[in-house]
Design a protein around this nucleic acid. Structure first.
Length: 534
RNA sequence: GGGCCUGUAGCUCAGUCAGGUAGAGCAUCCGGCUUUUAACCGGACGGUCGCGGGUUCGAACCCCGUCAGGCCCGCCA
């Protein structure tokens, strides 16, 4: 059973109606790691719906959180906004300075600036959650009841946090962070509480009162989270391992939400995605691959498969090089399998059966919509990569794949070719996928060359010097160089690939050579002969 | 200090929840296609399932211990 179905099954035991929640703080550029948060929730939702449950899938945007610091991609100007809620400060412009103009005119906040492109990417990938903005929820009174309980039971909450997380809270700690005279959540000391007002004194020496029913502040994270479960009615939430550790915010949250008279949601802790060789993704360090960037390179199904095929507790190492190649090929392999037939096989071991069922589940989750019909194109990523690099036009690619004017390639394949071309031109294309000629022959290439190979190489050079420089004649010249002395064409290809590309096999040479000047090719072959004879 | 995850073929991993004869892909090697594709087809090679105990008729799987690596508990998913 697919992991999402396992969670859905657990939910079915609890009831028929469910609110499945996800949440992210849009404090910077979104990355693939955030996609796991959302897709994990999306996949549980899909599985729950498949199981006949009534599901409300939500995405809570934590735009009530404060700006922690001036991130590397921000201008120093932002220091004035440290501690301010990211839903109430201007978005950065191209230089990283706060764009006051746009903020005034269009109301584009810092949070929206990062959120909007992410939502766009989510649509492309088939995720359409109900959006709940946290700051607006505070301002419109959704938190009233829970905030009051939190303030009334401040001592009990303090006890839970201190006991469960085993850390000591300051004497002036209070379960409500008021906004100060400048709109910052930092450096404010709570001096008293009298519902609905929390009295405070800020770092500027100003005193005031915060009305907890009007969003003049917020609950601290460890309370804010269970408060959301409670007023929204969340029954299931997947969250990162940072929240899931012992003494972490889920552990305190599950007790705190009971103070609100609410039962904690079904948890699912997921591992992080790291960029191969560079550690965890982090918005502030710039060590990211954005969902938008990734979607330019591959179809959404492949990105979904990345999340679907790994259990949540499995750390994922991702990169836009060979990982992507393998992932895309895995996707094609899955598509071309005949699961019905595999399941009918006799003497199917339990292990084998589980494997097939998980593959079916992962593929189902990879679909952008549940109605999508996935078609196998029978063209692997590697192969398409090869064609895109060697063919001079799209038409030539289609022709090579056997498509004609009357039998046109499917749009999904056209889309893949376009993305492939972007990938090839980008920095992401791994060296081993790039087609290139060897300019300076390496002597170790010829270690295994015997007399036959050397003889063929000499003839090959002569053939290429005299033949017409088009792909047909070049194509004949290569095997002829061996045939003319009664040898298998195989040797000729081995020689040609070894000398020109430094490997024993490769893509069809003739069309590639035809695109390159004859003199350059001859030069390479001559250098090889020189090295061999020396 | 507390907790989590990982350790299975050269590589990447599945299989561990519901114990029942060690799996996939890639890589390698061999063969075929008297060379449309680093394609495709067929085959081979390859594992003391980290280690040691225990439970069991039977353990990669459950229990205890142990080693190694990674990570979290400072609101970075």
């Amino acid at each position: 059973m697919h992991w999402a179905d396992v969670t859905a099954q657990a939910l079915a035991h609890r009831g028929d109606k469910h609110v499945i929640s996800t949440g992210i703080t849009p404090s910077g550029e979104f990355h693939i790691g955030h996609l796991r948060e959302i897709l994990t929730g999306d996949m549980i939702s899909r599985a729950a719906r498949n199981a006949g449950l009534d599901v409300d899938f939500i995405f809570i945007v934590d735009d009530a959180d404060p700006l922690r610091k001036v991130y590397p991609f921000l201008d120093e100007d932002y220091s004035q906004f440290i501690g301010h809620q990211i839903g109430s400060i201007p978005a950065p412009d191209l230089e990283g300075k706060p764009d006051f103009e746009k903020f005034k005119k269009d109301g584009l906040s810092y949070a929206d600036y990062f959120l909007n492109p992410f939502l766009e990417a989510l649509r492309t990938i088939g995720v359409v959650p109900r959006i709940i903005k946290n700051m607006h929820s505070y301002q419109s009174g959704q938190f009233n009841e829970v905030s009051k309980i939190a303030c009334d039971k401040a001592d009990e909450i303090r006890e839970i946090i201190e006991r469960v997380s085993s850390r000591e809270l300051a004497d002036d700690w209070f379960p409500w962070s008021p906004l100060d005279s400048k709109g910052s959540l930092e450096g404010v000391v709570v001096t008293g509480y009298e519902f609905p007002l929390v009295h405070w004194k800020d770092s500027h020496g100003v005193e005031g009162s915060s009305d907890i029913t009007k969003g003049e502040g917020k609950l601290p994270w460890r309370i804010d989270w269970p408060a959301k479960w409670s007023w929204i009615g969340v029954t299931c939430e997947a969250f990162g391992k940072d929240h899931g550790a012992a003494g972490g915010s889920y552990a305190t949250g599950r007790e705190i939400c009971q103070l609100f008279g609410y039962q904690p949601p079904q948890p699912l802790t997921y591992e992080w995605i790291s960029l191969k060789g560079q550690g965890a993704m982090s918005s502030s360090s710039g060590n990211t691959i954005g969902p938008i960037e990734a979607l330019e390179l591959v179809p959404p199904e492949i990105l979904r498969l990345l999340i679907a095929q790994s259990k949540p507790n499995k750390a994922i190492e991702f990169d836009t090089g060979m990982s992507l190649v393998n992932l895309a090929d895995e996707y094609e392999r899955l598509l071309s399998r005949n699961f019905d037939q595999e399941l009918e096989e006799e003497n199917l071991s339990r292990r084998k059966k589980v494997q097939i069922e998980d593959a079916i589940g992962a593929l189902g989750m990879a679909k952008v919509t549940t109605e999508s019909i996935l078609e196998s194109s029978n063209v692997t990523f590697r192969h398409l990569c090869l064609l895109a690099q060697t063919k001079t036009s799209d038409e030539m690619v289609w022709k090579s794949l056997g498509y004609t004017d009357t039998d046109k390639p499917p749009t999904s394949l056209v889309d893949r070719l376009n993305k492939m071309k972007i990938w090839i031109e980008s920095e992401h294309l791994p060296e081993e996928m790039r087609i290139s000629l060897i300019e300076n022959p390496q002597s170790e290439t010829f270690v295994e060359f015997g007399d036959e190979e050397i003889k063929v190489l000499e003839i090959l050079k002569k053939e290429l010097e005299t033949c017409d420089w088009n792909k047909e004649d070049i194509g004949n010249a290569i095997p002829n160089s061996a045939k003319s002395i009664e040898l298998s064409p195989r040797i000729a290809y081995l020689v040609a690939y070894s000398t020109l590309m430094g490997r024993s096999r490769g893509p069809r040479l003739a069309p590639i050579l035809a695109e390159i000047e004859r003199t350059r090719i001859i030069q390479i072959l001559e250098r090889c002969l020189t090295v061999i004879n020396s």
